[in-house]
Design a protein around this nucleic acid. Structure first.
Length: 222
DNA sequence: TGCCAGGCCGGGT
DNA sequence: ACCCGGCATGGC
């Protein structure tokens, strides 16, 4: 199995090249992006982050003082802007109250305990927590998303009923705990999803998804 | 024009 | 333990 997943990675990397994730110029910007991108296209998130940057509030001090309605108005293009504004404030409050307003302190924590703390924040679920750990913190926490689930299930590598942590374990138990590997792997899976999953019905098990290099070990769905 | 996008939460059964 | 609706903008 470990040979299998590493082989898939090598094949994807050779075919698609490094993805240079996560897009963003600071750890704080990356964290903001992980919340804004929840069930939303990255294109829309870019506009929202652009608004924050142009307004000069893309820093912790400013964000901690920004009234929620002003925050919501700035992130409007990302959709769900009222709930996401609250979720962002919850995350900022965690950094303020439980990390001494310091990202150094935040990511100096033990990964497992920090993950549990992040999951305790209202609006931060497993994917967002893992994306923060991996892409903002450089910690080896594999990120699972809907593409990952669909790609693996349609190849028959996992069942459709597999839950988030089953899939996370599937990768983490088979691969070395290398942040750079986890970083690139998740990014490549999303890239595959974007390029090959467009306009497919995720509820249709026979819908063609992956046509990438079957001769290299990535098989066609049944 | 309807469906989808790098989720998550709360209420109902 | 599921299943479902709500949240919302922009692209194709």
């Amino acid at each position: 199995m470990s040979v299998h997943l590493k082989h898939v990675f090598d094949t994807l990397l050779a075919a698609l090249g490094p993805q240079h994730w996560w897009p963003g110029e600071s750890r704080l910007e990356i964290m903001v992006g992980t919340v804004l991108v929840q069930n939303t296209s990255w294109r829309n998130v870019e506009r929202a982050i652009g608004n924050l940057r142009e307004s000069g509030v893309l820093n912790l001090v400013a964000l901690l003082d920004l009234p929620i309605q002003e925050l919501a108005d700035l992130i409007r293009p990302a959709g769900y802007f009222q709930v996401k504004a609250k979720r962002l404030q919850n995350l900022f409050a965690f950094i303020r109250d439980d990390c001494g307003r310091s990202l150094e302190t935040m990511f100096g924590k033990n990964m497992e305990s920090l993950r549990e703390q992040l999951l305790g924040i209202h609006g931060i679920g497993p994917e967002t927590a893992d994306a923060i750990l991996l892409y903002a913190g450089g910690m080896p926490s594999f990120v699972v998303d809907s593409y990952t689930h669909r790609i693996l299930a349609r190849h028959g590598w996992i069942g459709y009923e597999a839950d988030y942590h089953e899939i996370k374990d599937y990768f983490e138990l088979a691969l070395p705990q290398d942040p750079q590997l986890f970083n690139e792997y998740h990014a490549l899976l999303v890239c595959v999803g974007k390029d090959f999953c467009k306009r497919t019905n995720p509820k249709c098990p026979s819908c063609p998804l992956i046509r990438l290099l079957p001769s290299h070990g990535i098989i066609e769905p049944a």
